[in-house]
Design a protein around this nucleic acid. Sequence first.
DNA 1: TGTACATCAGTGAACGCGCGTTCACTGATGTAC
DNA 2: TGTACATCAGTGAACGCGCGTTCACTGATGTAC
Lengths: 205, 205
Amino acid sequence: MSKRGYHHGNLKEALIEAALGLITEKGPTGFTLSEAAKRAGVTPAAVYRHFEGREDLIAEAAFQGYVIFADLMQYAYDQGQPSALQAFEATGRAYLAFARKYPGHYISMFESGISVNRTPELAAISTKARRVLESAAEDLCEHIPEDRRPPASMFSAHIWALSHGVVELFARNSPGIQSPFDPEDLLESAIGVYLRGLGLIAADT
Amino acid sequence: MSKRGYHHGNLKEALIEAALGLITEKGPTGFTLSEAAKRAGVTPAAVYRHFEGREDLIAEAAFQGYVIFADLMQYAYDQGQPSALQAFEATGRAYLAFARKYPGHYISMFESGISVNRTPELAAISTKARRVLESAAEDLCEHIPEDRRPPASMFSAHIWALSHGVVELFARNSPGIQSPFDPEDLLESAIGVYLRGLGLIAADT
DNA sequence: TGTACATCAGTGAACGCGCGTTCACTGATGTAC
DNA sequence: TGTACATCAGTGAACGCGCGTTCACTGATGTAC
C-alpha cells in the first residue's frame, strides 16, 4: 500500500476507486482505462491483470455500488419497522441519500450504459435492491382498503421514478438547472402528497 | 436534395438528422462528427461549413428539440383549457409523448451533457418550455384552499421529476429494466394519485 | 538458514484505430455587363 | 445570350492525439527442500 515498489498490493481496489473518482468528476464519458491506471500509479497494461477490459472495470464498480445500495435500502427498511409507513418513507430517502453519497457508484449503475443483465451476479444484486422497495410498498398496501388498492409493484414503480427524477434533475447539477428547492425536501414533500393521495396519511397533516 | 452533385443543397438539416439518428440508435456517446458526415454523404470537413464543431452540432439539435418541446407543451396546455385540471394533465402527458416521439432530440437535450446555459438562445427556449408546466401548476394552485396550497414551482418540480423518472426508467429500454407497466399508464396513474393527494380530484374517483 | 525455482504482478514498447480539426484546393453556382 | 469573375460549398489529404489492447519481458514474492 504505502511506499509501493514493483508490486502494488491492492491494485484492484485502487483502480476501482480511481475510476469512481473520474466518473464523479467528469461524468460517465470522462472515464478512460488509461487515465484510471495513471491515477493508480500504474501502466494501462497492468489493468488487465485484474479486469478483462474497460467495460469489466465499470461493471465491477457498478456491482459494488449495487451491493452498497441494497444494503442501504435494507437498513432503511429495517429501521422503519414495524411501521410500514416509516419503513417506506425511509427507503425513499435512502435512494436519494445513496445518490448523493456515492455519486460515482450511482453513475456507474444508472448512467454509464452498462446493462444490468451483463452478468447473472449483477442482475441478482440489482433485483435484490429493487425488491426492498417493492417489499416496503407491499407492506404499505396492506393498509389500503382492498377495493382501491393499487398493485404494489406499480406503487413502487411510481416512487422509484419519482426518486430517480429528483436525483437526475435536481440533486446533481445537471445541464445548468438550478432549483430553488432542496432535493431532499422536494422528494419528501412529493412522497407526502402521493401517500395522502393513497389515503395513507391524513388529509390535514 | 435528390441526385446531389458537388453541392448538397440542404446539408445543415441533413447533418442534424444524421446526428439525431445516431444518437437515437447508439446513445449520446454513439454520435461522432465523422459518422454523421458519412451518413449525410459528405466529408467530415464539410461539417465545418455549417457548424463550429462537434459540440455545436449537438447544441443545435438540442435547440431544435427545445423548440418542438415548448410547442408541444404549449399546445397541450391550450387544448386543456379552460379546465386547469385538464390543461395540467395534458402537459404531463406531453412530456412523455415528446420523449417517445423525438428520442434523438430528447437525448440531446437531457443526456448529452450539453449545458442549457451554453448560449442565451438555448437558455431562453428551455426556460420557455419549463414555464408552460409552471403556468399549468399555477392555474391549478388556484383551486387549492389557500392555507394548504403548496408553492406552484414546487408542484411543477414534482411533476417534472416524476415525468423525467418515468421516461428514463421505463420509456427507454434502460439498463436492462423491463417493467410490467406501460409508461403512459404509469405516469397517468402516478399523477392521478398525486392530484388526489392535493385534494384536486375527488378521493373516490 | 540458504538456495533453487515457480508463480505472480508489474513494465514498456508497440499496434491499429477513429476521432476532431486544419488546410490548400476545386468544382458548381450566381451575378454583372 | 454569352462571357468573366466572385462567391460559395464541397473535397481529400494530412495532422496529432488518446484510446484500448497485445506481447514478450522482468522484478518481486512465496515455497519446497
